[in-house]
């Protein structure tokens, strides 16, 4: 399935970038490998106002990578390129990071790893009731308000 906004090259670059932004760790998958780039492409389609920043950040990463593609760089070189872009274009870069987090933490696979087995509704949660006896000390404080 083709992307809605991003080109194939941009989608590949975003995937590589996302694998550095949210890398794999223990049981947690990396964002790029999870397909977060596709989700971000969907956000850009739905909210055109995001495109300038996100696409700008991708172009800046591509430029910071120099002659070689970002994905072909070694790990340290990738991180250095991303840090340069963050320093030079913090707004655009942080929008890219935000949209990556949006895609990552709304993915059911990630939620399951964090112990979230369902959305908040319709079941909600069972929580213990309040016991009014807990207020005994405070009730004994006497009147704390000024009459006026």
């Amino acid at each position: 399935m083709t992307a809605q906004v991003l080109t194939a090259a941009e989608l590949a670059l975003l995937t590589a970038v996302q694998d550095e932004l949210v890398p794999a760790a223990r049981s947690m998958p990396a964002a790029g490998a999870l397909g977060a780039a596709r989700a971000v492409d969907g956000y850009l389609a739905a909210r055109p106002e995001l495109r300038r920043a996100v696409l700008g950040a991708l172009r800046a990463v591509d430029a910071a990578a120099g002659a070689r593609p970002f994905a072909a760089l070694g790990r340290n070189q990738r991180l250095a390129a991303l840090r340069r872009v963050e320093a030079d274009a913090p707004y655009d870069f942080h929008e890219l990071v935000r949209q990556t987090y949006n895609a990552y933490y709304t993915h059911p696979q990630v939620q399951a790893k964090l112990g979230i087995d369902r959305p908040p509704q319709p079941r909600g949660y069972e929580l213990p009731p309040f016991d009014p006896q807990r207020t005994a000390r405070v009730r004994g404080m006497g009147k704390l308000w000024r009459d006026a």
Binding site: L79, R98, Y101
Partner: peptide, 19 residues
């Protein structure tokens, strides 16, 4: 939830990226 934690609902700025 985890998304709002990562996007700064608590600390006012995005969670760090990377390692």
């Amino acid at each position: 939830g985890p998304l709002s934690t990562a996007t700064g609902a608590l600390q006012g700025e995005l969670a760090p990226w990377g390692g």
